[in-house]
Simulated scan of single mutants.
Amino acid sequence: MMFGENLSMSSTISLPTCSCCHRPIMPNDKCVKFNCPSCGVDLIWRCQSCREAARNYTCTSCNTIGP
């Protein structure tokens, strides 16, 4: 087989989303990620905008609401 012949080299990148506003978080964004402080199960992502505005997030595992 010749290089490039019938080769499919597609890959999909899955970006994390902000737990508050649900927008995708880009690689160079100033964001934070941490496990839920109550249950430790969910990974919470917060974008810079939501952190600065102190918007609430909700853990999908234990329903804890945090700033």
Rank of each mutant, 00 (worst) to 15 (best):
Leu15Phe: 15
Arg51Pro: 00
Ala54Asn: 12
Pro37Phe: 07
Cys21Phe: 00
Val41Phe: 07
Gly66Ile: 03
Phe3Met: 09
Asn63Leu: 14
Ala53Trp: 01
Ile13Phe: 08
Val32Tyr: 03
Glu52Ile: 04
Pro27Phe: 04
Ile65Lys: 15
Cys50Gly: 02
Cys50Lys: 02
Thr17Phe: 07
Ser11Pro: 01
Ser61Trp: 10
Gln48Asp: 13
Thr60Gln: 15
Thr64Val: 12
Pro24Phe: 01
Val41Arg: 13
Thr12Lys: 12
Ile25Ala: 02
Asn56Gly: 04
Asp42Phe: 05
Ile13Tyr: 07
Ser38Gln: 10
Val32Ala: 08
Trp45Gly: 01
Ile65Leu: 06
Thr12Ser: 09
Cys47Met: 07
Asn28Pro: 02
Glu52Pro: 02
Tyr57Asn: 01
Cys31Ala: 11
Ser14Asp: 08
Phe3Ala: 11
Lys33Asp: 12
Ile25Thr: 01
Ser38Pro: 03
Gly66Tyr: 00
Tyr57Ser: 03
Pro67Ile: 12
Cys31Phe: 10
Arg23Cys: 07
Ile25Gly: 00
Ser8Leu: 12
Lys30Glu: 11
Cys50Met: 02
Ser8Asn: 12
Lys30Phe: 08
Ser49Lys: 13
Lys33Gln: 14
Thr58Tyr: 03
Met26Lys: 11
Asn28Leu: 11
Asn35Trp: 06
Met2Cys: 10
Thr60Glu: 13
Thr64Asp: 08
Met2Val: 12
Met2Phe: 13
Cys18Met: 00
Cys47Pro: 03
Cys18Thr: 03
Thr58Gly: 05
Arg46Val: 04
Pro27Asn: 05
Asn28Tyr: 10
Pro27Arg: 07
Cys39Gln: 07
Cys36Asn: 05
Pro16Leu: 02
Glu5Lys: 10
Leu43Ile: 12
Val41Ile: 14
Val41Tyr: 08
Asn63Val: 10
Ala53Ser: 15
Cys36Leu: 05
Pro27Ile: 04
Ile44Arg: 03
Thr64Ile: 09
Asp42Tyr: 07
Phe34Cys: 05
Leu7Lys: 13
Thr17Asn: 14
Ala54Asp: 12
Arg46Glu: 06
Cys59Glu: 00
Gly40Glu: 06
Arg55Asp: 06
Ala53Ile: 02
Thr12Gln: 10
Gln48Ser: 14
Lys33Asn: 13
Ala53Gly: 06
Thr58Ala: 11
Pro37Glu: 09
Cys39His: 04
Cys47Val: 03
